[in-house]
Nucleic acid binder design. Structure first.
Lengths: 352, 352
DNA sequence: TAGCCTTTTGGGAGCGCTCTCAAAATTGGT
DNA sequence: ACCAATTTTGAGAGCGCTCCCAAAAGGCTA
């Protein structure tokens, strides 16, 4: 019904040229204040929106960042709110940077080829962020062929040249968690790993072993059970560990720690008296269990924020790849480990 | 370094015209098989990607769907995995439909104007999906001025003409939950509401009241406490309800039910003996509490999937707005209500 | 008021694609 | 082998914007 709106039609109504309208839209300083206000008024009145496709065509910029979370459904969806937190951090930072966020979720194995073509289309996004890309993922090999700048959240496996990432020192954090249990006098310390296709999980396992070795304790494979970062797998892993009488447990995330706690309590163990538990992440669930979980806090939201900013810096050539950012972690002592602590953590109901 | 790739350059290399390459890319039937294969080979060899901006400019289609989750941070991020499930449903369906998903997360109050301009730009997305838009949200008024097709997940407040939505019958589901408690002999049934700016929460409150009235039970405002859909608020609400000695509780979602359960157990109540609890959603947490939660299951992923398909139908004029889709719910009986049940639900560790 | 410099404005070209229409090549029937 | 029908291909225009450059307008000094 209403004629189609473009720069030209706005220009005509405002009695100026297309170029001037363009300048107004792009906040160019080369427009008199009088003209700017007038054009702005017409734009408002006509409810005009510049065509982003036309703009992108000439500027070779879409102002869109792509986010890929290839994590399998049962981890993303489940009780583990690591990914929602990452997303929140990404979403907020990306919006602040005045970009839009294009998202691909879930397993991409089946339409791998197809998706990769979309992802690697340099005209769709200005850059990409990969979250927790498993090292056996089909996208892995294609990364090196990517033309666009990209940032990974969580350290990639092996030496991926040109890959920038944002992560934490998982190895050291796991050592700290395990050392804490050792310091509390535990000698049969078990570990529930995360999905071992994710480097973070491998590093945490490594850190756990390191700490045992450093303390002269044996690394007993019967005290190591594999999980996949969700509650269910933590519960199962603990069932499997219980016959080997652990007196301490370091779980690769809080969600699995909660599942393990459930299994331990069900088996009649007292926590922390009989079994000392330390988790990882410090997500909400850590404060909702009884007893609440001692854990390693990592800045999950910040990972997303930092990754987004880093990507934009990469896009604008303010820095050049690869960049590696390591964010700090912190041991948060609550009830599940049995250490007395009067300053940190707090219970479930006085959270900030 | 390498020359810029476009249709023309591919055409030159293949010894055909730009038009032919375009036809190949768009799967036009008007190309001989011989030519198609040849061109395809060149495209592959050169790793060519058509410029989406140029295509969008002429086709007036971006093949992008916008998803807006304006929910405040503490609900999206928290223990409640309603939104991740919605997202998973949306993400999968949108990918299957061969669209990309553009996302806006979190509160938009501050840069309201700015965001709305971006959202309503008809050249950025082909359509929009709003998830749980609170009725006091600044976007609410602007919905009627939207030119693009849009679909809401969860019923919008009031009579928004032209608004299509996908939801469930919250009113009836809440009645069923409450009736179940009544049937179990409970007489002092409490309710913890969701955020009352979301229509679903209002409907559930209404259904709760309806059921009480229908059973000749009084509606006691002291037995109604307001929550915001997260664990913390469920815990607090229960603390507030306990002095009024409820013997039953219907919580507007599982996460709050879990918080309430925590508070009840802490206060020394036995569940379900002293207090019968029914939740809503049937998310993972419902099977992880002890006792596990009786709840109303709603098809959360399906909401996302259906909304995406509906939006695409709207975009392609296969249906016309407004469309209202109501998905089915189901009462899942577990331990927290005290009803004996031998067929449904199961415990936390035998999930499907 | 003329002359110079600065600020502001306008017009043309072109980004890479799709679409329409016409031309060329192929097919089939006689 | 010829003409009509069909299939396949090519060229031109144009989508709505930005960018470059030149022209116009405005400000200042002499």
């Amino acid at each position: 019904m209403s004629e189609r709106l473009d720069l030209e039609s706005i220009a005509r109504k405002a009695g100026v040229s297309r170029s001037t309208v363009s300048r107004v839209i792009n906040d160019s300083p080369h427009v008199s204040e009088r003209t700017r206000q007038h054009v702005l008024a017409i734009i408002e009145q006509e409810n005009f929106h510049p065509n982003t496709a036309a703009r992108a065509l000439v500027k070779r910029r879409t102002d869109i960042l792509g986010v890929v979370i290839p994590t399998s459904a049962n981890v993303f969806l489940s009780d583990n709110n690591y990914y929602p937190l990452i997303l929140a951090g990404l979403g907020e930072a990306i919006r602040q940077l005045d970009y839009a966020m294009l998202m691909w979720l879930g397993e991409v194995t089946h339409d791998d080829q197809h998706l990769m073509r979309k992802l690697s289309n340099p005209y769709l996004t200005d850059g990409l962020i990969f979250v927790s890309l498993p090292n056996d993922h089909p996208l892995y090999d294609k990364l090196s062929r990517l033309r666009q700048p990209f940032v990974m959240i969580d350290r990639p496996f092996g030496e991926l040249e040109n890959a920038s990432y944002v992560s934490i020192d998982n190895l050291r954090a796991a050592e700290i968690a395990t050392e804490h249990l050792i310091r509390l006098g535990r000698r049969r310390i078990a570990h529930i790993t995360g999905m071992l296709t994710i480097t973070d999980a491998c590093d945490r396992l490594e850190g756990y072993k390191n700490a045992l070795c450093a303390a002269g304790l044996p690394v007993d494979s019967q005290l190591i059970a594999e999980g996949v970062f969700n509650y269910e797998s933590g519960y199962r892993a603990m069932k499997q560990l219980l016959p080997h009488r652990p007196d301490g447990l370091f779980a690769a995330n809080d969600t699995m720690a909660a599942g393990a706690l459930h299994a331990a309590l069900e088996a009649g163990l007292r926590v922390p008296e009989d079994l000392s538990i330390v988790g990882f992440d410090d997500v909400d669930v850590a404060m909702q269990t009884t007893p609440s979980l001692t854990t390693i806090r990592q800045p999950i939201r910040a990972k997303g924020e930092v990754a987004a900013r880093l990507l934009v810096d990469l896009i604008n050539n303010r820095v050049s790849a690869p960049q590696h950012v390591i964010l700090p972690t912190e041991l948060i002592i609550r009830q599940s480990c049995g250490a007395t602590n009067h300053t940190k953590g707090g219970d479930a109901h006085t959270a900030e």
